[in-house]
């Protein structure tokens, strides 16, 4: 009797704690969205901050930076994850690499930002630009992305590799056609989770992508033109940096409105990422039939 009682009490306690965490998150998100509910209008989303009360360019900058960052970090992360899980033997170098990844993943982002400022912006001379920001974010993103890919690859049983090799197929082809496809659901959720972090990152960008968002021309496809939306060498203030800036510079009564609205967009986009990641990885898992 006593054991049943203890079992029930602990179970309820755990349920209570989980409920508490969920409630906290819901209250927090609900409050943020409630606060900004009147700010989010079509004009708010489509007006440049240079001419009115809007976040059009910041929102685009955030997405553009995210895409560039993923383009830079995805191949490197996948490559190092494959190297570390499949090819590398366990020795002092791989352990060092693992340790470096762990240390890098807990590096404060402001350090990454200052490094980017000193090295990329000043030394290399990229200036405050989308490119500087994307490279700094790659440093910031790489360890987490690599770790999640290592995890995804480790979840594929090594017997698959052996099976493929015993059929006279090269290790590389087994990797490409069996191991990586099977790891894709895990790889995708890793990408999207890191995308959420990148999208909300501010500290690493303040001194790399800059704090100004010149008005962009979305019809100008010439990437060398100063006001082209695709120009990677223009300064690009992102949504998260914008929220930080309007609050610190306190540019007037509108600051509050802008930041409240921007926060809603930021939160919604990150939630959307997570939701899509889950759907996509479930879909792929079902398609692969892995149950």
């Amino acid at each position: 009797m006593n054991r049943y009682l203890i079992d029930r009490v602990t179970r309820h306690l755990i349920q209570l704690l989980v409920g508490l965490v969920v409630a906290l998150i819901l209250i927090f998100l609900g409050y943020l969205i409630w606060q900004g509910r009147h700010q989010v209008t079509w004009t708010f989303l489509t007006t440049s901050s240079e001419v009115g009360l809007g976040i059009r360019d910041q929102l685009f900058n955030s997405l553009y930076l995210l895409v560039l960052t993923l383009l830079l970090s995805f191949p490197i992360a996948l490559g190092s994850a494959v190297a570390l899980t499949i090819y590398a033997k366990q020795n002092i170098f791989t352990r060092l690499a693992q340790m470096a990844i762990e240390v890098l993943s807990s590096l404060p982002s402001i350090i990454v930002g200052l490094f980017g400022f000193l090295f990329l912006v000043l030394k290399v001379g990229l200036g405050f630009s989308v490119l500087s920001g994307a490279i700094a974010l790659t440093f910031f993103n790489l360890p987490i992305l690599t770790q999640s890919m290592i995890l995804a690859l480790k979840n594929v049983p090594t017997s698959r590799l052996e099976a493929g090799i015993s059929l006279g197929v090269s290790q590389w082809h087994v990797l490409l056609k069996v191991i990586i496809p099977e790891a894709i659901p895990g790889i995708i959720s890793g990408i999207v989770l890191s995308a959420g972090r990148v999208f909300g990152e501010a500290a690493a960008l303040i001194y790399t992508a800059g704090q100004s968002a010149p008005q962009l021309d979305y019809h100008n496809w010439n990437i060398f033109s100063a006001n082209s939306f695709l120009n990677p060498l223009r300064p690009a203030e992102t949504l998260a940096v914008h929220i930080w800036k309007v609050n610190t510079e306190n540019i007037g009564i509108d600051a509050d409105k802008i930041s409240r609205g921007a926060i809603v967009i930021l939160v919604v986009v990150v939630l959307l990422f997570n939701f899509l990641a889950r759907r996509l990885s479930n879909y792929l898992q079902q398609k692969n039939g892995g149950r």
Binding site: P157, S159, R160, A163, S166, L167, G168, S170, V178
Partner: peptide, 18 residues
């Protein structure tokens, strides 16, 4: 690679691709 086509192998645990 050619050799392993002519000399195949089966392992202890069934290891079909998923």
């Amino acid at each position: 690679y050619q050799l392993r086509q002519k000399i195949g192998m089966l392992f202890q645990q069934p290891n079909p691709f998923a």
